[in-house]
Simulated scan of single mutants.
Amino acid sequence: MQFRDILSPDDAILVKEDQAVAFTVAVDDPSAQADADGNKFIEAGTWLAASTDVLLGDRKQVMTPTTDANKAQGVLLHRANVNNGQVDGALVIAGVINRAMIETATKAKYYSDDQVHNLVKSLPKITVIDR
């Protein structure tokens, strides 16, 4: 039997994107630091929050990163360049996230075992695996 790697985009954090539930939201991070090329990114896998529930409230409110699982309303699906301010992003509220596909610094900030445990308690339709 022969095995081969299946290639996917750099920010393909979902095991099966077609089985996830995601909504378009506005995202921004005023505290983001510019990289060597002068770009400011919010990485795929970042937890996002807003002052009110984005699914029930004002659809125009801007979501920002949070490390507090109790405030997280979902997970950013794809990397977002916020160099020029807010942009549209996809907020995952249900699906299987592959922690192994998340960028190293983002994984360290949001995906320790304890943080994952708290996230799935807050967002029970999110599952996190490490494959």
Rank of each mutant, 00 (worst) to 15 (best):
S31I: 05
A22Y: 14
V62M: 01
K71W: 04
D29Y: 03
I42M: 08
F23A: 04
P9G: 09
T24Q: 08
V62Y: 08
V21Q: 14
A26S: 09
Q33L: 14
L48F: 01
A36H: 06
V25R: 07
G38S: 07
F23H: 12
M63Q: 06
F41C: 00
V54W: 11
Q33P: 00
E17G: 08
K40P: 03
Q33H: 10
A22S: 14
D18A: 07
T67N: 01
T66K: 09
D5R: 15
K40R: 15
T46L: 07
K16N: 13
A22D: 09
D11K: 01
T66L: 08
A72T: 05
T24W: 04
A12P: 00
D53I: 03
T67G: 04
S51R: 15
L56G: 13
A69P: 11
A50H: 09
A80R: 08
Q2C: 06
E17R: 14
V75Q: 07
L14T: 09
D58S: 12
D53F: 08
D11R: 05
A69N: 06
T66C: 08
A72E: 03
A20D: 01
S31H: 11
R59V: 12
N70K: 14
V21E: 15
L76G: 08
A36P: 00
A69W: 10
A12R: 03
D58G: 07
V25W: 05
E43N: 14
D10V: 10
A50V: 11
N39E: 13
A80K: 11
K71E: 15
M63G: 00
L48T: 03
A49G: 06
Q2P: 04
Q33W: 01
I13C: 09
D28G: 04
V21L: 13
D11E: 12
N39K: 15
G57D: 02
A44T: 02
